[in-house]
Nucleic acid binder design. Structure first.
Lengths: 340, 340
DNA sequence: TTGAAAGCGTTACCAC
DNA sequence: GTGGTAACGCTTTCAA
């Protein structure tokens, strides 16, 4: 049986309360006593028992605010499912989840939603932040108030967020380029960028370019267009580019707009064009089945949601280190046969 | 606050002990009382509190036996790491792990190791079984003794094993074929089979053939060889086949023998040959770096180990359903850029 | 067949 | 600053 607080107390000739205070640095204890108890606990190899901790902490509720730009963005559906599943698993440990969804990329809107969540007395905030200094300042303000902030799916610079859960987007780009190389290392590529405002999209393009340049010198970049994550825009842009450059035989899509791209390809070309894109949303499977996309690179949204909620709880009960943490998930390549 | 046994007891005008007996079917209770209490618990939406359960069960130790054919098979290293990590996470819930490693595919040897583990008083057994009726019988015998058996990484037919944790090997084959199609849908393929004794290898070959036939009619199967998971055998076989069939431009390897195959390719051909293989072992990264393999399909060994131990614990404390369960992990495609 | 009570290890609170 | 003690929800044991 593992060593307990009670045993430490007996050995040190103090009460359990004193040991508790010493081990958790709660103050109200003579420094020398604290040191002595800490030393004893160390030497006995004390490890707090998580079950007992959880039971004892039951009374405390943990209210987690979750703020996502998920409206009209099907990617987030799985992330939400994961978060909800984690909440359910931790419900009998007192974890509650307050989800707020928003639409689009309006900075001020995000600030307002954060304020609203804070007014609902949340203990921690999880969000997919826009990469803007106003959001960073807001995060720092919350941290000062004692509300820890975690980012999920996308990170933000210069803020006091305590944890990021998500993938390495540059690597996403590297992998996309690697796939391109496998499929056709002499491709004529059109890059369709979603939203240049999003850090993640920029990273995916940069990573892609890096690998193309260093490993596939025969690849030709025909053009780069920006569709603002819009299928109609993507369709129009593709029509034009396909007509101007009939030699395009590969399209790399970062972000939304995939169905628009595929529709244009079907309509305006006869030859095979390989499409490499990201994420697994409701349309993806169908597009694979119709042979319209060749590969997609996924970022495990369900796990992202699950892990970030779990991480909140771990920090809450103090079983996660107090340090800043980055929980990095793996990019997952999927092809048609991953689904059938 | 969630509803507790105490509340149910008060509402039903019985003691907590009675409620406990009723809810867990421990017997020694009037059937009508049991029914009434069950109904009340249901109507109140009772959910046992996992933390309390864990704390109360602390005294009970759970000894898990883990038997793997892992000697000289680097694939299992990560699986073992995952199992050990899960054990560590559950150590303060009383979970112990007894690992026995064996080498090769000797049925009787596996039976003997199982017997030895049983003699060590394990409560549950996790193993990667050989697909043989003698092993199935052994499993059924243990089940009768009250030792639940779980399979990991590979499954077995006609046995009472309560859970399988692993991947769908036929899908592995489908995915391999899909990758082949992306890389070169007019390939001349050599199939290198590891060990025909292993169910998983057979499934990977079958799945591959299925997809090739249905989706890539232009692919030509040059030959199939069996290397018995041996690099030297693989090397010799490859040398011969490459000389007999200089048009081979794709090799599909199921199981071990990859370094042997790659060595032969480097020595005996000048043109590009794409290699598709399985798993991520120490050599894999290097082979990618040298451009000798194009893609590998991984089966998340770490997760397999972690999840199977977790599943043991869940069954032990009764939070997993009593049904047979299959926990299926996803096949993960990795290419060079997944590593760099 | 049932009830009462003693744990499990930790935290929190109230005395001193 | 400290010690004592009552929770937290569940299981188990011993009486009745």
């Amino acid at each position: 049986m593992a060593v307990t607080i009670k045993e430490i107390a007996e050995y040190a000739n103090v009460s359990r309360g004193t040991v508790d205070r010493a081990l958790h640095g709660r103050g109200g204890i003579r420094p020398e006593v604290e040191k002595r108890i800490r030393a004893i606990a160390d030497s006995m190899g004390y490890k707090p028992n998580s079950a007992a901790k959880a039971l004892s902490n039951l009374k405390k509720k943990l209210n987690i605010g979750l703020l996502l730009p998920s409206i009209h963005n099907p990617f987030f559906a799985d992330l939400i499912l994961g978060a909800q599943e984690a909440q359910r698993a931790l419900a009998d440990h007192g974890v509650e989840l307050l989800l707020v969804e928003m639409r689009g990329y309006d900075i001020e809107e995000q600030v307002r939603r954060i304020d609203w969540l804070v007014s609902q007395k949340i203990d921690m905030l999880v969000l997919t932040p826009f990469d803007d200094s106003r959001i960073a300042e807001k995060i720092n303000e919350l941290t000062k108030q004692g509300i820890e902030v975690l980012t999920v799916n996308s990170d933000i610079c210069n803020s006091d967020r305590v944890c990021y859960v998500g993938i390495d987007f540059e690597r996403s780009g590297h992998i996309a380029a690697g796939l391109l190389g496998l499929i056709n290392h002499r491709a004529n590529v059109l890059i369709v960028n979603g939203s240049p405002k999003l850090m993640s999209h920029g990273q995916r393009v940069r990573g892609f370019m890096d690998t193309i340049q260093s490993r596939f010198p025969e690849v030709r970049l025909v053009a780069t267009v920006v569709c603002n994550d819009d299928n109609f825009a993507a369709y129009d842009l593709l029509r034009q580019k396909l007509q101007d450059h009939p030699d395009i035989d590969m399209v790399y899509i970062v972000g939304e707009g995939i169905t628009g791209v595929c529709a244009a390809i079907s309509e305006f070309t006869l030859h095979q064009i390989d499409v490499i894109c990201f994420d697994d949303v409701p349309h993806t499977k169908e597009l694979f089945e119709e042979g319209k996309i060749s590969a997609t690179i996924c970022q495990q949204p369900y796990q992202q949601g699950y892990l970030v909620v779990q991480q909140c709880y771990n920090r809450f009960i103090g079983s996660a280190s107090r340090e800043n943490a980055v929980i990095e998930l793996e990019n997952q390549i999927k092809i048609r046969e991953s689904f059938y």
